[in-house]
Design a protein around this nucleic acid. Structure first.
Lengths: 342, 342
DNA sequence: CCAGCAAATGCAATCGATTGCGCTAATATA
DNA sequence: TATATTAGCGCAATCGATTGCATTTGCTGG
């Protein structure tokens, strides 16, 4: 139970009567090693069940083959799906991923960056916390030349590669769809305006209204925490104001469920009287009554794209290319909650 | 942009005129270093912005401070919440977690174990894939003395510490609740019978029936993949068989949503005509119409407990204790789908 | 005043793999 | 046949931190 037979390249070197250097080169398929020797090494390695020590290798050439990921919280379908995408892509290339959560806490985010740096990750991908309005903690990352990728919750205040969906276009589409369905007094649920994705969605929403010749009414734009309770509160607020809205486009699925609940509570018919559209395509949107229209953010693809970007960055190492910004198309998913014209 | 000023203990040693040994000891708060020197070292370290290289340290003393986690898929609330629990607990103790997914694929699981071993993780926590019926790939882990913890999807065929919820008791409770509500023909949705948790839930289900004096009817137990479509199929199957069930206790939330959809499609009233209970407390169960009763598996707590178990194992290293099996209490959450007596 | 001991630090090996440089022998070129 | 090449491999340093053992310095007690 405690047999610590550490098998190293020296063991296999001894086994076949060469030096560790040769074994190392053979294992790495170095051109200056004869095919015969390579074969012997490989066989001996297999025979004595040799496992390379990545830590030693990492120390030597400064590459840990580790990618650090920071998300606000992992137990949210959107983020865990992104992580899934990254993991898939990275694993296939012999990289492992390390997860950290910021809990939308600025301080925790700073600490985590530090921890990842300590762990000597080869790259960092992050989705910014909601309260992150200063970016000095990324300076160290950039300065060390460690590839950094922002996904979804990004910022333009830093010259960093990023992967986002087309928030503007999808918000535009969603709003347009509501207009097509005959809704004319469309409210919008949004979050703190410091975050770009919410700004973009608001922009798409108002642009769609404008293009349709509908005046933008700022009283119909309600800020909240974008959670279930936030959606409930925002809905009650709208009702109390008596502004007579007939649809809601929410920048979050959670908030739109809150709205759905509040409206059903007072017998408002969805979608006949009020149309609803959320954002993110969380799994539960399919299961509500009625099912909620929403925007699919293609989380897994976003993860894969982020990972791909990382590998591009390390491929042409040295040549610092201009900032790359990949925008993925999102998908408006139309379900019952916004379909009153059949 | 390419300033690679690698700062090591040697730099700080030179700075204050001592050797690296002293710096190392000072940094690790070794008792044989004078307080004065320690102070100098700490200050110098801060001054030149020294960051310890964990990789070098890991190589030296064989500890990577990394915990490997294997889950079938990360983008399932239950698993991502467990990961969250583990990450929280581990992070607070200066350990990082590495995520891998098995996709319920046996081969991938084997490869992943190997990859984690390569990465020299200090411990491994896994939730077995659905198709894993052989456990030889864990031998290497055990033999190397690397702490291994199974959570949720475990097996007794290996002497490994595990953390589970009381599947039997919670299934018993759920079934009992249905009986209390007056349902008498309770069907059960389950999965492949090789997995212990499903066996346990089935056992709890049948025991509850027995204790209530209701005969167990195996025709009411339906196997499926436990996904949405599986639940739909199982429901249609039951309906076609014309067995006259009046409730379903499903070992999965996804399958019970499938049942809900099928039943609503043919105007069956929930919970008046048929009562439903799922398992896992996935977020969407709260949002369906009616809201689904389910069993809360306390995922975050399970993650924390698993992590705690790991730290116990490395604490008294060497002394191999007997196998520890922690069983957490689960929580029956009663919502509308099973409440017809008010 | 000196042996004796403890406190504080230095020395050097080590963890395992990698790699620049050098050496040897074989093949090629003149 | 003598020299220039090149293939194939060994030597030894290196990555950065850790640690057993040795050494130095300072202090105590006789």
């Amino acid at each position: 139970m405690k047999k610590k037979e550490k098998i190293t390249i020296h063991d296999i070197a001894m086994e076949i009567g060469v030096t560790a250097s040769t074994v190392s080169r053979a294992l790495n398929n170095h051109p200056r090693i004869s095919p015969a020797t390579k074969k012997m090494v490989l066989e001996a390695a297999k025979a004595i069940n040799y496992k390379p020590n990545r830590i030693a290798a990492a120390l030597r050439h400064g590459k840990s083959k580790l990618i650090g990921i920071i998300v606000p919280t992992i137990n949210r379908n959107f983020f865990s799906s992104i992580v899934r995408g990254i993991e898939e892509y990275a694993n296939a290339r012999d990289y492992k991923v390390m997860i950290s959560q910021s809990y939308d806490d600025y301080r925790k985010e700073v600490e985590t960056i530090d921890a990842l740096l300590d762990a000597r990750v080869d790259g960092i991908m992050v989705s910014l916390g909601k309260n992150t309005h200063s970016y000095a903690h990324f300076d160290a990352v950039l300065q060390k030349g460690i590839p950094l990728v922002f996904f979804d919750r990004t910022t333009d205040e830093l010259t960093v590669n990023q992967v986002v969906i087309d928030d503007f276009a999808s918000a535009y589409q969603a709003t347009h769809h509501l207009l097509d369905q005959g809704y004319r007094h469309i409210a919008h649920f949004t979050s703190h305006m410091k975050i770009k994705i919410y700004l973009e969605r608001l922009r798409g929403y108002s642009q769609a209204l404008r293009d349709y010749g509908i005046p933008f009414d700022e009283r119909l734009v309600v800020e909240s925490n974008m959670q279930l309770d936030g959606g409930q509160e925002s809905t009650r607020f709208l009702l109390e104001q008596g502004l007579g809205f007939d649809a809601i486009f929410s920048a979050s699925d959670y908030a739109i469920v809150g709205a759905l609940q509040e409206l059903k509570k007072i017998q408002v018919k969805i979608p006949q009287e009020v149309g609803l559209i959320g954002f993110s395509n969380e799994p539960f949107t399919e299961f509500t009554e009625p099912a909620l229209s929403t925007v699919d953010q293609k989380a897994i693809a976003m993860g894969q794209t982020s990972a791909a970007l990382f590998f591009e960055m390390i491929a042409d190492d040295g040549k610092p290319k201009a900032m790359v910004k990949k925008t993925l198309d999102a998908n408006l998913i139309i379900r019952s909650s916004s379909s009153r014209i059949s």
